[in-house]
């Protein structure tokens, strides 16, 4: 398990799964009403799924940090939120591109669209909060609380199309009962969801490792007696040291 998660195999698995997903998306039958436009679903839905998943992982590791107070949980929470913000933005952009030919508009004040945009900006705020707090422990604590509270939006986004009258269609797969989609299309969609989930693991891993290295660099002592940029320049001092 650890070799799959931490070795080079994950990269290969992502490449294979994404290619297979792309081929399947091209081969799947077109939709009766939307024709080929419906193929956008095979990336729009996985992108939105990754947004949910990332913010759930941020929630989990934020809780873990509050409980255990170990910095690695903070790193995972931050990395996951960053990936989540990217895929939320991607889902909004793809939804807009899908919306123009099907709905007829790029943007509308529909509950699903608006709640997703709010979620995007709130998690951008999470990333901004991390940037604005210098002390690592204070940063971890504040963002852990933020990461827990902000997750309330995920169920709101998902249920928005059920709770309120919307232009966006209600869920097809994540709802009680049989998914109202042709089973070849469903298999293609699930393959792409799997491929995107693997991609998420890869991105999360890379970002978490980077955060660990960054932290090491931040806490590393500046070599005593070593001149940073020649003797003409004074070594810069970190504010908190």
């Amino acid at each position: 398990m650890s070799r799959i998660l931490f070795g080079r195999r994950l990269t290969i698995a992502v490449a294979v799964a994404l290619s297979a997903g792309l081929v399947a998306a091209m081969l799947a039958p077109p939709d009766r009403v939307q024709g080929n436009l419906q193929r956008l679903m095979y990336i729009h839905v996985p992108a939105a799924w990754l947004a949910y998943l990332s913010f759930a992982v941020t929630l989990g590791s934020s809780v873990a940090w509050l409980w255990r107070r170990q910095m690695r949980y903070d790193r995972v929470a931050a990395a996951s939120a960053e990936v989540g913000v990217f895929f939320t933005g991607l889902a909004i952009a793809l939804g807009s591109i899908w919306g123009k030919p099907t709905w007829g508009v790029w943007w509308t004040w529909d509950p699903r669209v608006v709640t997703t945009a709010v979620m995007f900006f709130v998690y951008l705020g999470y990333l901004a909060l991390r940037r604005a707090t210098l002390d690592p422990t204070a940063r971890a604590r504040r963002s852990a609380v933020f990461g827990v509270v902000a997750f309330v939006q995920v169920p709101i986004v998902h249920m928005s199309v059920v709770w309120w009258r919307a232009l966006h269609q209600p869920p097809t797969v994540l709802k009680p009962g049989d998914p109202s989609i042709d089973h070849v299309m469903l298999a293609t969609l699930l393959l792409n969801v799997l491929a995107f989930t693997l991609l998420y693991l890869l991105l999360l891993r890379a970002r978490t490792r980077l955060a660990a290295v960054e932290e090491e660099l931040e806490t590393a002592p500046l070599g005593e007696g070593q001149e940073l940029a020649g003797s003409a320049v004074l070594a810069p001092r970190l504010e908190r040291s």
């Binding site: 039958p29 939709d31 009766r32 099907t102 508009v105 269609q169 070849v184 299309m185």
Partner: peptide, 16 residues
């Protein structure tokens, strides 16, 4: 003067 189309959550190939 403005029309939006609301498609549903069902996806089927054309010949079914």
């Amino acid at each position: 003067d403005t029309m939006k189309v609301k498609h549903d959550e069902n996806y089927q190939p054309p010949d079914s």
